[in-house]
Write a protein that binds this DNA or RNA. Structure first.
Length: 478
RNA sequence: GGCCCGUUGGUCAAGCGGUUAAGACUCCGGCCUCUCACGCCGGCGACGGGAGUUCGAUUCUCCCACGGGUCACCA
């Protein structure tokens, strides 16, 4: 049974790299018909941010990623909040001590610091604990214990040989055991270190696939040895490369890079963000790139995750967002777009027609307010240059003629609809023996005061209504 | 610095010994068209470097360069 977990720390907004990891874990579980578990790793009180857990819940929910077990929904492997599990780890570490795979270390922080200085001075391999307490006699240990000396429990690493593991993405990786430090499992306060808690939790929760960032690649051999020491089955490892801001820097909330929440606030669709994230570091087998979450579950294959870091490209995200918008129904789009339109347009308009015209013209929702602002706010004067169009051979002079022709023709319309307006304009053009564009291009300019508009002249007329249309034409005629 | 990992156009990427080295985004043309956009057609643009192995390397091996990660009683 495939069981994956997403184990975020509640430290604030969810950044996109994190969301991507959640997605990959979710997809791996769902593709196999397995379970997706949410575990909150909140033991770092320093970085804990109030409300961050809700952000995690909401982000996953907004994206349709449901979890089968978690703090809020429970499950048979709980509790799912790490801080509530803290008491259970010491026993596991003691088991290892009894097996001779771990040992108590009574070295003080001062000695460790001293050791570090010495190592630095002598130029030998820095950082590693010298394993002094590894060969303490029973009597010595008992003496320390009797004296009530504080101690940590360290993992006893093999001194020779290699430890190997297999990663779905990176393949077979081997490291020399001599490189490994006797890492601390249980701190002096009796609480586990992250690495230890993580292994025990994953085992206890029966996690079958561990999906996490590639920064854990170098600590995985230690994890591997822990699983072996306990005699537990090792999970399948899937290490994902980081999402980068540029060639050198990881995307992070620290330097204010866009979080998922920021992107949504900027008018990106959550489906599009998720779709983009799917593609950032992973590629589907075929050519199709636009997917719903359901599609993703079907086609997901973790072995196609790329090995190298991927740079986050907002331009591509925009394109994916546009693709999702264009695939929406007009009704759906209208519902989403209306609040954005209403930011700059208060007057009564043909909302449906506007939205139909807007849909293929906006890549993200926040493009909208500025695009439609002309509806309520026309510039005082229209730059005559705008009337120039090479193809239709128009300029300010021809525009004047055109608008003078249009004014009575439009004024005569009783049924103010896009079709009726268009018909009337066509008739006028025929009468004048000119191309439609010659007549209609200036109309769009006169009604909007800008070159780029959501729809042609007749669309605009229908959208803003008869009164405004005639008023603007008359003003343009002067 | 030690160890681990990576390196295909500007970006995301396919490729898994023999290909005119896909595709997407961007950019540039053209078509369509009542503007702009959408759409369609076309174009520019890449295997980090050097040795091997091989009849043949983007693909395998080694070295170098560059980049990333990791070396806590943080998670």
């Amino acid at each position: 049974m495939t069981r994956t977990r997403f184990a975020p720390s509640p430290t604030g907004y969810m950044h996109v790299g994190n969301l991507r990891t959640a997605l990959y874990a979710y997809l791996t579980a769902r593709h196999d018909g397995g379970q997706f578990i949410l575990r909150i790793e909140d033991t770092d009180r320093e970085r804990y941010v109030e409300g961050a857990v809700d952000i995690i819940y909401n982000t996953l929910k907004e994206n349709g990623m449901t979890w089968d077990e978690g703090p809020d929904v429970g499950g048979e492997y709980g509790p799912y909040v790490q801080s509530e599990r803290m008491g259970m780890f010491k026993d596991y570490a003691e088991q290892l001590v009894e097996k001779g795979m771990a040992y108590r270390c009574f070295c003080t922080e001062e000695r460790l610091a001293e050791l570090h200085e010495q190592q630095k001075a002598s130029g030998e391999a820095v950082g590693h604990y010298d394993r002094r307490c590894r060969c303490l006699s029973c009597e010595e240990i008992q003496a320390h214990l009797d004296a009530g000396d504080p101690y940590v429990i360290r993992q006893k690493m093999p001194t020779e040989g290699v430890t190997a593991f297999d990663d779905i993405i990176y393949g077979h990786i081997e490291v020399q055991n001599a490189e490994l430090e006797d890492q601390i499992l249980i701190k002096t306060d009796g609480m586990p270190t992250y690495n230890f808690a993580n292994v025990v939790d994953d085992h206890l929760m029966a996690i079958s696939h561990v999906i996490r960032g590639s920064e854990y690649l170098s600590s995985t051999p230690k994890y591997q040895l822990l699983y072996q020491a306990f005699g537990w089955d090792v999970p399948v490892y899937i290490h994902c490369p980081p999402v980068m801001k540029d060639e050198h820097n990881k995307l992070s909330k620290r330097n204010g890079d866009a979080s998922y929440q920021d992107l949504v606030a900027q008018g990106y669709l959550s489906e599009a963000v998720l779709n983009y994230l799917l593609l950032l570091g992973w590629s589907p087998k075929g050519e199709e790139e636009i997917f719903s979450l359901e599609d993703m579950i079907k086609i997901w294959d973790p072995s196609r995750i790329n090995k190298s870091p991927a740079i986050f490209d907002i331009v591509k995200l925009r394109a994916i967002n546009a693709a999702h918008i264009s695939r929406m129904s007009d009704e759906e789009f209208t519902k989403l777009a209306e609040p954005w339109i209403r930011q700059t347009v208060k007057s009564e308009i043909d909302m449906e027609l506007l939205c139909r015209n807007l849909k293929p013209r906006c890549e993200i929702l926040s493009d909208i307010p500025e695009r439609v602002a002309f509806i309520d706010n026309m510039p005082e004067t229209i730059d005559p240059e705008l009337y120039k169009n090479k193809k239709f051979k128009t300029d300010a002079d021809t525009a004047l003629t055109a608008l003078k022709t249009l004014e009575p023709a439009l004024a005569a319309i009783t049924d103010w609809t896009k079709d009726a307006i268009y018909e009337a304009c066509l008739a006028a053009a025929q009468k004048l023996e000119v191309k439609n564009g010659w007549l209609l291009y200036p109309l769009g300019i006169a009604l909007s005061g800008q070159r780029s508009t959501p729809g042609g002249g007749t669309d605009l007329a229908a959208i803003i209504g008869r009164e405004k249309t005639l008023e603007r034409i008359r003003k343009a005629i002067g």
